[in-house]
């Protein structure tokens, strides 16, 4: 795959120069910390709101550590996915629309390397942001709320990593198919929101679908088991690979505008 190393270097540098290496992990960290902190202060906040009659006892069952982490991951599943899709919605189309890609693809490089370098940069950003944010959330949860089951917490996060990766990959694919970045983001987010919704409506029939990942992660963290996950993981991996292959085909057929 000619040009991969050089292109990867360029994507890496672009993530740094566009501040993505800084702000995306920071936002994940904030989302991660806020979950345990807000639960911790919830009784106080209700108290401060002060509409309760004197002597009323507020009794909120204190959530378990696993529940807090599940909540954090849910945030990542929605807002994290939104950020990733919006960050990469123009990955290919912008290079086509502005003409920067034409100048690269006339060089003796492979279109597969062009797409793969973008995918690897996206995957690295997803992995780093999720790891940083989740670590922060975990730390706060243990300090403020209580212990968590390490194995399940790791597995739950891994499922969400896969979820973010498949959303990001499809954003990349749509950016190679469609001219408009907004349409690409909308398609990627719409597809997976619909998939998650359908899977929650028909959990048995769609047990293999990537839409099961969020629910499976929650089950792991709350109940400690989620049944067999291999079909879901395998299908999701296929979706990721398929997205990259389709993007490569699109770039090869239509390198420039």
């Amino acid at each position: 795959m000619r040009g991969l190393a050089a292109m990867l270097g360029k994507e890496w540098l672009e993530l740094a120069r566009s501040w993505k290496w800084l702000w995306v992990p920071l936002v994940f960290i904030l989302l991660g910390i806020m979950q345990p902190v807000s639960y911790y202060f919830l009784p106080q906040l209700l108290d401060a709101a002060g509409n309760l009659p004197e002597g009323a006892v507020i009794s909120i069952p204190l959530p378990s550590g696993g529940e807090i982490l599940a909540g954090t991951l849910e945030q990542y599943g929605i807002f994290g996915a939104l950020i990733i899709a919006l960050s990469f919605m123009g990955a290919v189309s912008q290079e086509r629309n502005t003409g920067t890609g034409a100048l690269i693809l006339v060089k003796p490089v492979s279109p597969a390397a062009f797409v793969l370098s973008k995918w690897l940069a996206m995957a690295a950003l997803v992995a780093a942001s999720l790891a940083a944010g989740y670590a922060a959330s975990w730390y706060y949860t243990v300090v403020l709320i209580g212990p968590v089951a390490v194995g399940n917490a790791m597995a739950g996060a891994a499922l969400y990593a896969l979820w973010l990766l498949v959303v990001g990959s499809s954003a990349l694919m749509f950016s190679a198919l469609w001219k408009s970045p907004a349409a690409a983001a909308f398609s990627a987010l719409g597809t997976f929101a619909a998939l998650a919704l359908l899977t929650s409506l028909f959990p048995r029939q769609l047990a293999w679908s990537p839409g099961r990942l969020p629910a499976a992660s929650r089950e792991l963290l709350l109940e400690g088991a989620a049944g067999s996950l291999w079909p879901t993981v395998a299908v999701t991996a296929l979706c990721v690979i398929g997205s990259v292959l389709i993007a490569v085909r699109a770039v090869r057929a239509h390198p420039a505008d």
Partner: peptide
């Protein structure tokens, strides 16, 4: 507890 939250927001 909330100091780090404020600091991260400021950095952002």
């Amino acid at each position: 507890i909330i100091g780090p939250v404020v600091v991260v927001q400021l950095i952002l």
